[in-house]
Design a protein around this nucleic acid. Structure first.
Lengths: 159, 159
DNA sequence: GGCAACACGCAAGAATCTTGCGTGATTTTG
DNA sequence: CAAAATCACGCAAGATTCTTGCGTGTTGCC
């Protein structure tokens, strides 16, 4: 189960390339990182089995699919005991509009990344679902105007 | 250049499957959506060329890579003229700590999704970069405690 | 110095990708 | 309404890629 310390320069290159293009063939990947295909594939599988690569995902174009509203919601609860946090977290998993969600510390307790077909659908969600959920205190929303940066979770500026 | 209206049930299945596993082989994908491999591959390419599939990305495990801090920053500027918004947007692209960034409307002007190796690195970024950037008025941060939902951008609950 | 552990690259068989082509269904057109 | 055109499907075959086993060279550790 390798961790960060076990990764060498080639592993980092693999991670960078697959974060940029997760569907690259192994042959192409092996050329880019400078080793032959078999050891390259073995490294990728090792990274997958170690959980360093959590999976692969196609990135979809929401507007082209009729999803014109992307927004973030900051949620504050009345009571933040463990049971209440878990209850709200569980509820977010049942809302299709919520795509990613984080429990956070600071002025709010949760941050929700939401996608909806239009403003009406989003407002309906906020009013009829979010604010009417028990224990929800504050809801602040930020409608996105446009995405200005979109890279993978991990930066490769330094290594 | 197909749009939403041109997509049939099989296309939606393809999108769902590739959003869940972007590295699935075309043979496996074709089995799951119920057609043979050649037309399935043709559909995928059509979706890619139409920009509906924007790309593919490996999802990496930040903590395993020594990145223990994931946070969001809400930024308010003093002046929100177009030139100033563009200037700030451009600056976010030069910060490796900032992974995704959105221009938003509401109480803040920008939302930054940040990843850092530790709290010190993040605080250094906030103090020495963010707050010292010209035209930055307010900076509110939300440190993430844990991710409670992590799905692709597009929901497939309805179609 | 010798041994064990490890990762590499080669090679071959299996699987997948990719293209061309014929068929059938649906839509358009006369 | 019929004929033609369009479209997407599935089959088949060659090209590419994946996958595994194996031998070799290097590294680290007695």
């Amino acid at each position: 189960m390798p961790l960060k310390a076990d990764l060498d320069a080639i592993d980092w290159k693999i991670l960078r390339e697959l974060q940029a293009d997760g569907r690259m063939t192994n042959v192409e990947l092996s050329n880019r990182v400078g080793i032959s295909a078999p050891p390259c594939l073995r490294r990728v599988k090792r990274l997958e089995e170690a959980g360093i690569i959590r999976g692969y995902r196609a990135l979809l174009n929401a507007p082209a699919l009729g999803l014109d509203v992307v927004a973030f919601c900051l949620i504050g609860l009345h009571h933040q005991a463990d049971a209440e946090l878990r209850t709200f977290a569980e509820r977010t998993r049942g809302w299709p509009i919520v795509r990613d969600a984080w429990m956070v510390s600071g002025e709010s307790d949760f941050l929700l990344h939401c996608v909806a077909s239009d403003l009406g659908a989003f407002q309906t969600f906020v009013i009829e679902e979010l604010t009417s959920t028990p224990n929800v205190d504050t809801v602040r929303t930020a409608l996105t105007i446009r995405r200005i940066k979109d890279e993978g979770l991990v930066s490769f500026a330094q290594p």
